[in-house]
């Protein structure tokens, strides 16, 4: 029986090689993918998030951990799909039009993925039409919008407007975030939720799809 705690440590330490190796061993020994995700990867990413909050970890460490987790998820994803396990939710995420900041968005995407969501990442500088197309194609139930610039915050509002125009607003919950975004702004533009960090974004997404 492989020592599964090593998976937790590997994700926490951003060690992709070990994360992948332990995952392979675990799968070979018959451990279920869900157990790896729920008991080891998610807690590790939660810890990573809190180390970031208290300035022990910085962006490089965060991205290393996210990469380690993704390496392991790559192996698990086909198994999860084959077992017919439903994802926790289907999220379409992107940074809004005009805005190229993507680090925060990437972290939110990784955390959601780690928490069992199926995530479609549209990248940065994403026009509303792309969100709409992806919602339909992926049958998403959550849309996550990120903006880091005060000049692109209005694009969150116009994206939500465009979802309404296209008749898909009712099909999805919209969550927003990014440094200049506030709870108040989120309410003003008719978003369904806001959070100021990636770990809380996971809790928020769970609540929204519940």
């Amino acid at each position: 029986m492989p020592e599964l705690q090593k998976l937790y440590d590997a994700v926490l330490n951003g060690d992709q090689k070990t994360a992948v190796a332990v995952t392979q061993e675990a799968l070979a020994a018959g451990v279920s993918p869900m157990e790896l995700i729920t008991n080891y990867m998610v807690p590790a990413m939660d810890k990573v998030g809190s180390l970031f909050e208290c300035e022990e970890y910085f962006v490089p460490e965060l991205l290393l951990s996210a990469r380690a987790m993704k390496g392991s998820l790559e192996l698990l994803r086909p198994l999860l799909a084959a077992s017919g396990a439903e994802p926790a939710g289907r999220v379409v995420i992107g940074t809004v039009k005009g805005d190229l900041h993507d680090i925060g968005k990437n972290l939110v995407a990784s955390m959601l993925e780690g928490a069992g969501f199926e995530v479609t990442d549209l990248g940065a500088d994403v026009p509303a039409e792309k969100f709409i197309a992806a919602i339909e194609e992926k049958k998403a139930n959550v849309v996550a919008l990120s903006a880091l610039l005060t000049v692109t915050m209005p694009a969150m509002r116009t994206t939500i407007e465009a979802l309404k125009q296209a008749g898909v607003r009712e099909k999805v919950k919209v969550m927003v975030g990014g440094a200049p975004v506030t709870q108040q702004f989120a309410e003003e533009i008719g978003a369904d939720g806001y959070s100021d960090n990636a770990s809380a974004a996971v809790g928020l997404a769970r609540k929204l799809v519940a």
Binding site: P60, L63, L64, D102, I103, N106
Partner: peptide, 10 residues
């Protein structure tokens, strides 16, 4: 690319 540079450090 900022995301890549962050990983390059390690």
């Amino acid at each position: 690319g900022l995301n890549t540079l962050m990983l390059d450090f390690s």
